[in-house]
């Protein structure tokens, strides 16, 4: 469904060039969920935004359903904009405060020329689909809770009838009890509408739950991709190993038994990322060669790709 090859996005700022996304390659098959995890600032949002061409890629290509959309102009892009939608990270900032929930959900229908007489029915249908009621269509974003706002964002993404949705931290801002509601809803929608997801998140246990495969990102590059259970039970890259060991376990007994493998130092700046394997400055297994190797994902068997040549 989606193939991204060597995707690169740099931002030129006053303090220097930020290597936000640096040669990211990944594929997402139709109907699956690819999880994308990694520390704050590693480039997850930028990857998502570049894939849907909100940012212009500097290098690499984006193939959606067999079409190379990397260099398409806005007009050529329009049909693809309809087919891939994004749910944005912040449910508070991503909804226009002066528009009602109904208008927010209606907007993509106008952009994508859905016949006007169908709008109201479809808005009502979408509201019900995401667990809101139709009377709430006239209310403004501030009159909804965080979880409800996230549902409006999802309804807006669904309004264009997309085939794929890039979900950027759709649950991070929500209470635990509400997170499960949204995750179940995303799973139900995937089943009933045949959706494909790229699911970006911090919460590694939720990512395991929802994803078919998971990609781990560090400083703009993907260091490991594998099937969800394979990655969590058999992590190979030293960064993934450390990351997974740090995930809190909601069980006091198990929590006291496991061993956290701490990362030394701080995450380096994306303005001057380390040479070779970008993780070498913090890697517990680093060797002198790590400073000069080229980071490429290698298949270690079982469709398990890892960028560290020494595992």
């Amino acid at each position: 469904m989606l193939t991204v090859e060597g995707l690169t996005k740099y931002f030129h700022t006053q303090s220097g060039t930020v290597h936000s996304v640096d040669g990211v390659s990944l594929t997402v098959s139709r109907g699956e969920t690819l999880g994308l995890v990694g520390e704050s600032g590693c480039g997850k949002t930028t990857t998502g935004r570049t894939i849907i061409r909100l940012y212009e890629p500097d290098k690499g290509c984006i193939i959606f359903d067999g079409h190379d959309i990397t260099h398409m102009n806005q007009r050529e892009l329009l049909p693809f904009r309809k087919r891939i939608q994004m749910i944005f990270q912040d449910p508070y900032a991503s909804l226009n405060p002066r528009m009602t929930a109904g208008d927010i959900i209606r907007e993509p229908m106008i952009v994508h020329h859905v016949p006007k007489d169908e709008h109201t029915d479809r808005v009502n249908h979408l509201l019900k689909l995401v667990g809101l009621n139709t009377e709430q269509a006239g209310r403004y974003p501030h009159e909804f809770s965080g979880g409800q706002r996230q549902r409006i964002g999802i309804a807006r993404a669904l309004a264009a009838e997309p085939e794929m949705i890039i979900c950027d931290e759709p649950i991070s801002a929500l209470d635990v009890s509400i997170q499960a509601q949204i995750v179940n809803m995303l799973e139900d929608l995937q089943k009933s509408l045949g959706l494909t997801y790229l699911f970006i998140a911090h919460d590694l246990s939720m990512v395991r739950h929802i994803s078919t495969r998971v990609a781990v990102m560090y400083l703009g590059s993907i260091v490991e991709i594998a099937g969800s259970d394979e990655l969590y039970t058999n992590p190979l890259h030293p960064y993934t190993v450390s990351l997974l060991s740090s995930v809190p376990i909601p069980d006091p007994e198990k929590s006291s038994q496991r061993k956290i493998i701490p990362l030394k130092g701080e995450i380096p700046s994306a303005i001057n990322p380390p040479s070779g394997c970008k993780f070498h400055t913090r890697c517990p297994n680093a060797k002198p060669e790590c400073k000069t190797i080229t980071q490429i994902l290698q298949d270690k068997g079982n469709n398990h790709l890892c960028a560290c040549p020494f595992v």
């Binding site: 635990v176 009890s177 997170q179 499960a180 739950h209 909601p250």
Partner: peptide
């Protein structure tokens, strides 16, 4: 109990989550 059920299973079993319905 509802809070603990809302969490994904630690062993990775992909059982459907059991949320607490409604709002605070």
């Amino acid at each position: 109990r509802g809070l603990l059920h809302s969490l994904p299973k630690a062993d990775g079993k992909r059982e459907r989550l059991i949320p607490i319905e409604g709002q605070p």
